[in-house]
Write a protein that binds this DNA or RNA. Structure first.
Ligand SMILES: [Mn+2]
Ligand SMILES: [Mn+2]
Ligand SMILES: [Zn+2]
Ligand SMILES: [Zn+2]
Lengths: 155, 155
DNA sequence: TTATGGTTTGATAAACAGTCTCATTATCTA
DNA sequence: TAGATAATGAGACTGTTTATCAAACCATAA
């Protein structure tokens, strides 16, 4: 079966150093806002909407006075550079998470919203086979399983 | 491998009769608007945004004078009753398609937007196994493979 | 058939998410 | 440290989806 939960695989210091290197490489600037956004994403275990991330940052760093536009701009930039990934399901809009974890897919409880992460080698391998069959050059994929979690089944 | 394209599996008359029965069962009314929305979804092979569907209907049935709000309302109702399903990826918003086809997943070209449908038995079976392992009661799932289609690779 | 009451509708206002603009501020490099 | 330029916050703006409500419509039963 090989399904398993995922866990963070990179230290924050390393992540930050890589991020600084990336910015330098692309002639982008290392700003306070960008740093706090990265940090907040790293230390949050949640899948965050831009709005939720904005709130967290306003709470923790009120003096930063970060604007929502910067949150959106930075999330887009981070996603383009494969540092975060986004997940969109239902009407709830996009949710972002730090991609410093290994790739994984999601199981979503439609009752309580709980998101369980997993990786399954059989599925990963099969996706490559399918893409190959259609002459398709796969860059990425996303899989969601919807249903009712253990906890909600017992309520 | 068992991947294959999908095709429509139900006659329109049957679909319409089932729809009428459903409406009656739920004490909802069979209206001209609802009929034309169902019909247009059935005969379109595309994955349609609410806006695109609205345009199609205005072209074909101008005298109906269908409002966009009715399109949204009806699509939601159809989705709740598993008659259509929606697919949302990127910023492009939700696209709807008639679920009278068999279940299938999607392969999306990020260059030209082409959507290829497929079903893969290995993946279908594996998803059940994963849900089972986590004590999760699966209701639905959705998988998208993103990449570059054959055509776009040769451009 | 027609009357009746609840449903559905279209128009339009409102909410909402996300993007754009631009004057000001911050960062980087020499 | 200064100058060039990138990034920022505020808020205007866009496009999409939802809510409101009076008018029209549909199903039912007389
Ligand atoms: Mn995740
Ligand atoms: Mn499809
Ligand atoms: Zn749950
Ligand atoms: Zn293509």
């Amino acid at each position: 079966m090989d399904s398993s939960s995922t866990e963070r695989t990179i230290e924050y210091d390393k992540l930050l150093a890589d991020f600084k290197a990336l910015l330098k490489d692309k002639a982008l600037k290392f700003t306070n806002q960008r740093e706090k956004i990265l940090e907040t994403l790293y230390y949050s275990q949640e899948h965050l909407t831009p709005e939720a991330l904005h709130l967290l940052i306003k709470e923790k760093y009120p003096e930063l006075n970060a604007g929502i536009a910067t949150i959106y701009r930075t999330l887009s930039m981070l996603e383009e550079n494969d540092i975060v990934s986004s997940l969109s399901f239902g009407a709830q809009g996009k949710k972002y998470e730090l991609g410093a974890k290994d790739h994984h897919d999601h199981m979503i409880c439609t009752e309580c919203g709980e998101i369980t992460e997993f990786v399954d080698d059989v599925i990963e391998a099969q996706q490559h086979k399918i893409a190959e069959k259609f002459g398709f050059k796969m860059h990425d994929h996303s899989m969601q399983i919807y249903g009712i979690c253990k906890k909600c089944q017992n309520n």
